[in-house]
Design a binder for these strands. Sequence first.
DNA 1: CTTAAATAGTAAATCGATTTAGTAAATAAT
DNA 2: ATTATTTACTAAATCGATTTACTATTTAAG
Lengths: 343, 343
Amino acid sequence: MRNKRHSIKDIAKTLDVSPTTVSFVLNGKGKEKKISDEVINRVLTYTKSINYKPNMLARSLRTGRTKILVFMVEDISNHFFSKIARTIEDIAYEKGYRVLFCSNENEDKRSRDLLNLFYERQVDGFIIIPSTGIRDDIRELMKNDIPVVLFDRFFPDLDTHYVVIDNYDASRKATRHLIDNGYQNIAFVTTDVQQVQMLDRRRGYTDAVAQEGLQATVLEIPFGDTDSGSGRELMRDFFRNKELDAVYFSTNYLTRSGLEIIKEIDEKLIFQLGIVTFDDNELFRINTPTISAVAQPMEEIAQELMRIMLHLLKQKNSVEETMQVTLSAELIPRGSSLAKVNV
Amino acid sequence: MRNKRHSIKDIAKTLDVSPTTVSFVLNGKGKEKKISDEVINRVLTYTKSINYKPNMLARSLRTGRTKILVFMVEDISNHFFSKIARTIEDIAYEKGYRVLFCSNENEDKRSRDLLNLFYERQVDGFIIIPSTGIRDDIRELMKNDIPVVLFDRFFPDLDTHYVVIDNYDASRKATRHLIDNGYQNIAFVTTDVQQVQMLDRRRGYTDAVAQEGLQATVLEIPFGDTDSGSGRELMRDFFRNKELDAVYFSTNYLTRSGLEIIKEIDEKLIFQLGIVTFDDNELFRINTPTISAVAQPMEEIAQELMRIMLHLLKQKNSVEETMQVTLSAELIPRGSSLAKVNV
DNA sequence: CTTAAATAGTAAATCGATTTAGTAAATAAT
DNA sequence: ATTATTTACTAAATCGATTTACTATTTAAG
């Protein structure tokens, strides 16, 4: 009745060979270790017949490698993150690594819990979008020689490997695009989170408008309030009361609710405003009107992340230079932000 | 420079006590095992000072328990699933279990890969929405005495623990609701996936209309095509060409695209049709008009799942009866499906 | 015919914790 | 003064794999 998990020792006993032999065969080292074809076959046939699955805990304990990577983002259901996740998973899979995904929901406690959980379980590496307060936890990981690569943002005062995009430049181009198309009163809607990537986007915007002598109008939505009442109220008031002819959203979830609100205020308003958003999304391509977007090179980001990670996984404990990559994002102009229509 | 992970042996050596002692103290068994307060303190202070984190692989290998549960659904970004995930995580956390989430995207291969990955790593239990073809893999797990609880759907010919809702009854009530409000040409939009829960919903619908002598009109969208072109085309044609006064969607992602398409066809159409959807969602509460929905008792589902899981985790290898729970879902009537307005 | 090399394996240590079955010394009971 | 008990620990086995360092036998070389 009982159906215990099989171990190499059990297998060795039934086949009347040593555990060593079984291990060699199962690891494909049979030939190399001069095990006879007959024994190789017996082991292979038997283990297949009982559907033997090795105990990875034991293997990892011995080898020191779990062949597991962790990919931690703010919210795995966000299109931008899940797209990157997919590419990473594919690359990792080919190299024999599995990837576990998790969301920290931009909470430090959750981030810390997750880092701990996986650190204790000896995962081989972390690819992380860090929440603001976990700088020290990241440093701790690095001190313990665990490969860590950050992306989307980083800590200016911590020397880490990372992959980011040039947010300042992209933001500047996006703003310029609106200006070049005749918009004069361009608002910037962003979150109140003080993270490099957001600050850079903001600077890109303010510098671009300042250069043309235009006024900067910034609306900060408290993080997490985007979909709830208070954030929506803020936006509603903002769009109603300010004299705007264009809006530039700093991130895709703000755009999502922003568009809804603009439509609510006045069905026609959305056709009159110049609109640009950070982070592209199918939604913006099929929306009426289509929305211009700053598209991050997701494929490339994923590839760079894995390039660095695999490199780190290879050379255990070498204290070499940190690898910091800045990619550039592309503006995809679409209907909403093209030449201003004067009403 | 090197910063090796600390082991209990290292700690024992530095403190000049035995590994046994360190282990006892760290597991809070110091008092019970008559370790002196002085030693207890030394161990605790030192381990804290070096920020010691136990190697869970080693612990799990020894104890046979990883204290990890796996929660596998179709798509973790779906609101219905992620809500349940959250509740499960909270209950599990309190009992000392961590939960890993993953999406199988309703693909058998992916399901299998994930089950294998976690089985090999000795997780303690699985809570699963199974994709169609993994019946045998589930059975394999059960044969190996791994606690498995299914939900949302199950295999009629496999005796498993599960928690589902009474889809037939809920679907019947939803259809009756439309009928009672004067709708006569009620369409049912569903997927082509042949799974119990979907078939039950369908039967609930067909039985309800049949009872009133009304005609059943069913549209099947190929799974996965919901958001892509072909699925949308199907729906568009359907809504355009059929003489309908009401639509009942069998699942929330169908509703999502369905609503978009209805709006696309004619802005007013959405106010004229009676609409009911399976699976509630904030979206339906704030949509204009608000949409009636069959709401599954998510909190209760999560609690039942964990009640069963914790029960299974407690009594290792007892071959008792399977626990099968059927909860009932509630219809939340909202604007869209109330008394038919004759135009 | 002897020695070297190749073949076909195996014994035992190891990874880092837990846990059972001890032991030596101090204290209490008789 | 002797035995029993309690205190305060520790040695060693164990979980299931991997891996290093052997050994015994057969074949090949000189």
